[in-house]
Amino acid sequence: MKPRYRRNELKETQQLWEWREKIANLYYEVRSSPDAVAAWGLWCDTRSTLFRDHPQSPIEPADRKAFEGPTIFPYDPSLRLTVQLAPVTSERITVATGADGDLSMHAFARTSGLEARLGGELTLYWIEGYGGGVFLPFADATSGTETYGGGRYLLDTIKGADLGVVSPDGTLVLDFNFSYFPSCAYSSRYVCPLAPSGNRLKGPVRAGERLPISK
């Protein structure tokens, strides 16, 4: 039985490796495209295919065949926003993530430029540990009604969700049309870090992934 377990573990690890590669390649295409709407269309289509067909999909296996893909708001160019980043007093957060252990991260920057449009600013976090990565979760006025109650992710660079780095002029483009649900929104198999209280916008963000519309 032990060798069989190891074979299964190897197969699952290879599948996860492939999933991560496909996500990283997708976001490379998004960053490289001069047409934000076309890049968003590619993002929507690729994620729908992966969620339906890939063995590492967060959709339960029995539901994948009928799954048409994540439900997405129409592209809203007014929610592609340019912000400045300001340093912040380091705030360290540790989140339990089930079998994966504790996840530690610290705040490293706060946006400037979202308040007028979205009713608040957001803190960017750096996930600690080997390599590290940028993490930007948020909640807004749609959370729990039109979108997942625990909030959404916009950046999670460890897992390939990287829309681009800060420009030489110190600005960063945050395109909320690419915001998406954490895996725990789809399955209890996952335990995900959710948006901290300081990353809850007062205004609605009707862009990116949303809950299915009742028919």
Rank of each mutant, 00 (worst) to 15 (best):
P77I: 05
V134N: 04
W19S: 03
M1T: 15
G69E: 02
P193L: 12
L122E: 01
Y125H: 07
V88W: 08
L118D: 04
F178Y: 08
L122Q: 01
N25P: 05
I23L: 12
I213Q: 04
E68W: 04
R210F: 07
L10C: 09
P168L: 15
G69V: 05
G98A: 06
F176P: 04
G133K: 09
G164N: 11
I59D: 10
C44Q: 14
D35L: 03
I23E: 02
R152L: 03
Y186S: 11
L26T: 05
P182V: 08
R92Q: 15
L201F: 00
L10W: 15
V165M: 13
E9F: 13
G120N: 00
T97W: 07
A62F: 11
T171P: 12
P55W: 11
G101I: 09
A195I: 04
D45T: 14
Y153C: 08
P3G: 07
S48L: 06
S183Q: 14
L50F: 01
E128A: 06
W17V: 03
R210Y: 08
I213K: 05
V30K: 07
I213H: 04
R47S: 04
Y148G: 00
A86P: 01
T123C: 06
P34T: 02
V83P: 01
T142S: 08
V88P: 00
L172S: 13
P55K: 11
E128K: 05
R64G: 03
N8A: 15
L124Y: 11
P3C: 06
P168T: 14
T89Y: 08
Y125N: 01
P70L: 02
A66R: 14
Y148I: 05
T97Y: 07
R20A: 06
L10N: 14
L79V: 00
R206V: 01
F51C: 10
G160N: 11
N25E: 15
Y153P: 02
P182K: 11
P204E: 02
L194E: 02
M105H: 04
A141P: 04
L122M: 05
V166A: 10
K159M: 10
A107D: 04
V88T: 12
L201Y: 00
V205Q: 00
E12P: 00
C44H: 10
T13M: 10
F108L: 07
C44A: 14
F138C: 05
A66E: 14
I213E: 10
G150A: 12
S104E: 13
E115H: 06
L124C: 08
A99N: 09
T71C: 12
L103H: 05
L42G: 04
F178K: 02
P137Q: 11
G150M: 09
S33H: 09
R206L: 06
I59F: 07
F176Q: 06
G151M: 00
S214W: 12
R110D: 05
D162E: 09
L114V: 00
H106Q: 10
P182D: 06
I59H: 08
G131C: 11
P55G: 12
A195H: 03
Y148S: 00
R80C: 06
P204S: 11
T89Q: 13
F67N: 10
A39N: 07
L10T: 14
R64A: 03
R31D: 09
W40L: 01
G149S: 01
L10E: 15
L85F: 03
A99S: 12
P168V: 15
E128N: 04
H106D: 08
T89S: 10
E60F: 09
L85Q: 03
G41R: 12
